[in-house]
Amino acid sequence: MRLCIVGIGLLGGSFALGLKDKFPGLTVIGVDSNPEHAQKALDLGIVQEILPLKAAVAQADLIVLATPVNAIVSLLPQVLDLISPAGVVIDLGSTKELICTAVKDHPKRKQFVAVHPIAGTENTGPEAAFASLLPGKTMIICEKENSNPEAVQMVEELCRKLEMRISYMDAASHDLHLAYVSHLSHISSFALGITVLDKEKNEQNIFDMAGSGFSSTVRLAKSSPEMWAPIFTQNGKNISEALTSYIEKLQIFKKIIDQQDETGSYTLMKEANEIRRILQGI
């Protein structure tokens, strides 16, 4: 099999490295608009060669779009125009509804499988990629019924080879749920980072006093704005709804603290502790 990765960063690079572990003879072709990233991917052995998009797609059995979601919306119709009759294209974007809508009437729509791996770190670029990122994680497949069964089967088999769990949902439900369990947490982390930077002008104080709790909570604030700004735009309606609920909870906490209501804060935190049971095993 010949694999083409468009956008050789954390997710695209990790997908390639994971499959190379499982298929030693796999050929990986890279496409990247950043020449430094392209060269780094070659140096790290993530890809064997770098080609322009048209040439890469023509040679590939599976094309993986791992760029920011705004680029996926514009690239996907182009790739479907170029793809061979037996080729399959997937995207790894964190939004799905707009991406699926962009090609809903494309004559080769059935050669596209919309997927989202629930995996990642705050790091970016080819050097952030590692083969063990995806095993044990969940791959969401959206609008399965709009893709060729053979294309879906190929993706499912690769996910199983990577030891990933597979989940299915429609694109709208995906975007709604991700607004709460992923996108909101990134906004919360960005906001906390800005709040601390605004208050603590002395960087040494931040370094000296920040414990593991702060570090883990603000970790996502190190994430790529180039990747996340388009996600916030594309899923804006759902994220705004999530933010409204989140802000209401923050206001309740503020009121309880202002009123020195220790019983109230204890009750809220015990309610929140229920998340421990739900997240066991993740």
Rank of each mutant, 00 (worst) to 15 (best):
F190Q: 09
I99N: 01
P24D: 13
G18Q: 07
L176I: 08
L76G: 06
D170P: 04
R277I: 10
S212H: 04
L3C: 03
P117G: 10
D21G: 13
S132F: 00
V218A: 10
E36D: 13
T101C: 11
V115E: 01
V57T: 07
F232A: 13
S189P: 02
M169E: 13
L26W: 13
V155C: 05
S188R: 03
G9F: 04
S182P: 00
R2F: 00
R2A: 05
V73M: 13
S14W: 05
V196G: 02
D21K: 09
Q111C: 06
I247Q: 13
A38C: 10
N148H: 09
C159P: 00
I247W: 09
E271K: 09
Y266M: 13
E97K: 15
F207Q: 04
L53V: 11
N273G: 15
P149R: 04
A210C: 10
A58L: 08
L98E: 14
M154N: 04
E145A: 06
E241F: 13
A272F: 15
V155D: 03
M209G: 04
G213M: 04
E200D: 11
L10K: 05
G30Q: 02
L3P: 00
A210Y: 05
G120D: 08
E150M: 03
D43W: 11
I72V: 15
A179P: 00
L220A: 12
G281Q: 15
K161E: 07
F130Q: 07
N202T: 10
Y266F: 15
F253W: 14
D21A: 10
E248L: 12
A41T: 06
Q259E: 15
A242S: 11
K222S: 12
F15W: 12
E122S: 12
A221M: 05
V155A: 03
V31T: 05
Q48L: 11
S147M: 01
R219C: 10
V89W: 03
A102I: 13
N235Q: 10
I5R: 01
E156K: 09
V64G: 08
V115A: 14
S132V: 03
L10I: 07
T195H: 05
V152W: 05
Y246F: 15
L44S: 05
D91C: 14
C100W: 03
S74G: 12
H186T: 11
G12A: 09
M154V: 10
E157H: 04
K137P: 01
Q48E: 15
C4G: 02
G25W: 06
P107M: 14
V73G: 00
M269Y: 14
V196K: 00
D61K: 12
Q204W: 12
